[in-house]
């Protein structure tokens, strides 16, 4: 605990010496060694290549080129982007009513309801993803339900091992990530503002489009970045729920390169577009104050 000594300056009034560096040395050192440097080195891998089982450290752009030209990578990339976009938009649509309801309409047991929304976030992601496998499978709950109730006669195989299945699962597992920031920002919207808009003759939809939507943009963006980024990088759901040809997402392919395929440079190159897109979204979100914390 080298940093303890640093606390000697904690109540440092302006004018007395001592800064935060001794306190921050340990955490920043950790982040540097165990996150930022590994991340940078990973990106460097993208410019290397594999020679049988060893890594050839001569500079090459082959991997990067492969990502955009060699089948199936471009298609997978586009499929992943579309999936992430669809999931994000769906979660926005699902999250808005319940966030609004929680923030503005619920009068009793609000904390409890909020807890209920947050809890799935903390319950195992794997458990929730695999629950969908149980539900969507060919002999699964949904199919046997549809058959016993006579809605269908044959089991529908399109649920599992399909893009539909992945889409449903993604929408479910990431939903709390959208509700939470949205609720937080809606909760802070003063009711008077909405009343004011109503007084000025704005009807429900106009109020929504002109007042609520713009003001909740930071929350929406924060949630969207999370959902988009989580979908882009996931390989658990694709492998559990997807898995048939034509359903691969980029996360699964990256995981393969670092696993069975053992082609780290290609894996690193495939991560580049993911990173670029997520960081791009972060920058956009940041411009709209989505990441902004109260700075003092």
């Amino acid at each position: 605990m080298a940093a303890i000594a640093a606390k000697d300056e904690q109540a440092a009034p302006s004018g007395r010496k001592g800064g935060p560096l001794p306190l921050l040395a340990l955490p920043l050192g950790w982040m540097l060694v165990f996150y930022l440097i590994p991340l940078a080195l990973l990106l460097v891998h993208a410019f290397w290549s594999v020679d049988y089982l060893t890594i050839d450290r001569t500079f090459t752009l082959e991997n990067i080129k492969a990502v955009f030209t060699v089948a199936p990578y471009p298609a997978v990339l586009i499929r992943t982007l579309l999936m992430a976009a669809a999931v994000t938009l769906t979660d926005i649509a699902i999250a808005f009513p319940i966030s609004w309801w929680l923030a503005k309409k619920v009068t009793s047991h609000r904390e409890l309801l909020l807890m209920l929304v947050v809890f799935p976030l903390w319950s195992s992601y794997l458990v929730r993803a695999f629950a969908w496998k149980t539900i969507l499978g060919t002999n699964g709950i949904l199919n046997s339900f549809l058959q016993t109730t006579g809605i269908t006669s044959e089991p529908i195989s399109a649920f599992l091992y399909s893009k539909t299945g992945m889409y449903i699962t993604f929408c479910h597992v990431w939903l709390p990530f959208m509700i939470l920031p949205l609720y937080t920002i809606l909760d802070r919207l003063p009711d008077t503002l909405l009343e004011a808009s109503g007084d000025l003759g704005g009807n429900g939809w106009k109020t929504f489009l002109r007042v609520i939507l713009p003001l909740s943009l930071p929350g929406l963006l924060a949630g969207s970045v999370s959902v988009f980024s989580l979908t882009m990088g996931d390989y658990i759901t694709p492998s559990l729920i997807g898995g048939s040809p034509g359903t691969e997402l980029i996360g699964g392919i990256v995981a393969d390169q670092f696993g069975v395929a053992n082609n780290w440079p290609l894996g690193a190159a495939l991560i580049l577009p993911i990173l670029a897109i997520v960081i791009g979204l972060l920058l956009v979100a940041n411009r709209f104050g989505a990441l902004g914390r109260d700075e003092r």
Binding site: P38, G233, D234, F258, G267, I271
Partner: peptide, 12 residues
């Protein structure tokens, strides 16, 4: 995405 942390540390 978690996969980035995972593979970065693996490679490191």
């Amino acid at each position: 995405p978690g996969i980035v942390t995972g593979v970065a540390l693996l490679a490191f």
